[in-house]
Write a protein that binds this DNA or RNA. Structure first.
Lengths: 222, 222
DNA sequence: GTATGGTAAAAAATCGATTATTTTGTCTAA
DNA sequence: TTAGACAAAATAATCGATTTTTTACCATAC
């Protein structure tokens, strides 16, 4: 029986959590903005209690700031933080990738090829690229999945969300996309050939290029 | 004006969060135990709403598991997870320490000496060692504080809490305590001498020794 | 003209009660 | 005797309303 397990198992009670997280990462709220709880309640068509529970979880996750008796606020963006996130992503994702290449089995190889293929085929122009974003996240997740450390994966996912707040500030740039897509396929190649060192080097470069995109968009205000 | 900032700033609204966190890390609840919300409500003398918000935050933080419509549960302990946590702590705390030694200033040196001294002087027999635990956490936090990465510090703190769930399973062992205390002072020495490499090596050893304590206690069931 | 104090409006946090879901216990039928 | 279904109890999740705190505005004094 292939019982279908919900993607974000455990916390599935509130779809509001996923919706809010997506909108926060996607930049649907301005950085520094104070969230009007009543407005959210109406917009997402949800009660106060589930909404507040979702906000609390997101605050603990780092996508919101909770101020003493002053509600919730979208965290400010800063050059320093972007640098911090990118650097740490480089360290942690590189570490995870090397480990994954050691431990990944044949199923992983197949998953990886599938994820890369789906990403390549994704229609960027579809729903404002939302589907591409989902597949992109999924690809990176698949890449490091067999690293053997639940906590490392958790931190990487958290950093990814934070990073994407910067990367997704501006409009799509098809030229850059091309280049990054190429790297995705090279990453798969190196992973399949079990070349951990080279894969890590490429990942460093991949994150650095994404960082430059994110930095440019951040500096263009938005 | 040396205005005192609450330790866990931002989320200060509910002291219930801190109390629960302390009790979870301190092992006041059995691993795998399902939390009876009404009992908690009574025990901590708090309303349902603040309690649920605290539980949600703790679940997002990783000190609780939230199951779909089945409330909250204390995460199970496992050898695999302990290994994972210890290994990652070694990587991240070592990384942070090296960076802190590069960036730390004179104020840091003073803070470090102070933290180490307070830890040494702490009365272990006082309130079931609770005060020692607090100072021990504070010492390690001080050690890596100037590493320059907010996110790295965040992850380290999270791992520390997870690690302590294992380390604090059993009763106090004064003989081991002696040895670890000695290492704390050596760490300060190396930090003051700006010997990043040696400090990191000692930190690796320090975490490994703590790991052996934690593992022994875990294997003694509890 | 600026600063201060007070009042009104807004918003966040919390409470008490209701609703929905899961778990437990019991009874019946194979 | 066991398995299954139903009912009852327990518990989690949610709702609507109340309380508390903050923010905005305005009047008055200096």
């Amino acid at each position: 029986m292939n019982k279908h397990i919900p993607l974000s198992a455990g916390t599935a009670s509130s779809p509001i959590y996923d919706a809010l997280r997506r909108d926060l990462v996607g930049g649907r709220f301005a950085a520094g903005e104070k969230l009007a709880i009543n407005a959210l309640k109406e917009h997402y068509q949800v009660g106060l209690s589930p909404l507040r529970e979702a906000l609390n979880k997101l605050a603990a996750y780092g996508l919101l700031i909770q101020e003493n008796q002053r509600g919730f606020r979208v965290p400010k963006l800063s050059r320093e933080e972007l640098d911090d996130i990118a650097r740490l992503r480089t360290e942690l994702e590189g570490m995870a990738l090397e480990r994954a290449i050691v431990h990944g089995d044949a199923v992983w190889e197949a998953d990886l090829l599938a994820a890369a293929h789906r990403l390549k085929r994704a229609d960027v122009s579809l729903d404002k690229g939302e589907e591409w974003e989902r597949l992109h996240t999924q690809f990176h997740r698949t890449l490091v999945a067999p690293c053997g450390s639940v906590w490392l994966l958790r931190f990487i996912e958290q950093l990814h969300d934070q990073f994407d707040r910067y990367r997704r500030l501006g409009p799509k740039m098809p030229s850059i996309r091309q280049e990054l897509d190429e790297q995705h396929h090279q990453l798969v190649e190196l992973a399949l050939h079990r070349d951990g060192k080279a894969a890590r080097a490429l990942m460093d470069d991949h994150i650095h290029k994404s960082y430059e995109v994110a930095l440019a968009r951040y500096q263009a205000h938005a």
